[in-house]
Amino acid sequence: MPSKTLFIVLSSGEHEKLQIAAMTASVAAVSDRPVQVFVSMNAVLAFEKGKSAAERYQGGEISKIFKEKNVPDALGLFGQGKALGDLKMWACSMILDLKEWTVDNLVDGLFDGPLGLTKFLADAEDGELIAI
């Protein structure tokens, strides 16, 4: 029986939360489970094109340890999930409108497009949804 699609609402831009979202999404996707990620609120800012790792990844104590050790890069993990599994990522259209951005303002190769919350929730009705 095929696995239920995992829907993730990622709203925090905190490094530790980006990391667990990226780990969950990528590992599920490479384990034959379709995944869809809806990136909203401050999380959108972490995907802004042109930021350095220091600007992109800001967090607490565990974030500092991530930076000291050889922990996989969060955005890199999302990319691996897309390359090796069925992972789709959507940028919240409301936040893009508020920032006067398009998906072109976000890092290349990760986003499948802008999406509204209503459509994402409708798609998620038959799957499992977690919010981070």
């Binding site: 490479v30 922990v71 996989p72 691996q80």
Partner: peptide, 17 residues
């Protein structure tokens, strides 16, 4: 060696592919 979760798994999957 030296890579943390899920790095080794991802490297394995890329190689298997």
């Amino acid at each position: 060696r030296g890579a943390f979760c899920p790095g080794p798994l991802m490297e394995l999957i890329a190689a298997l592919k």
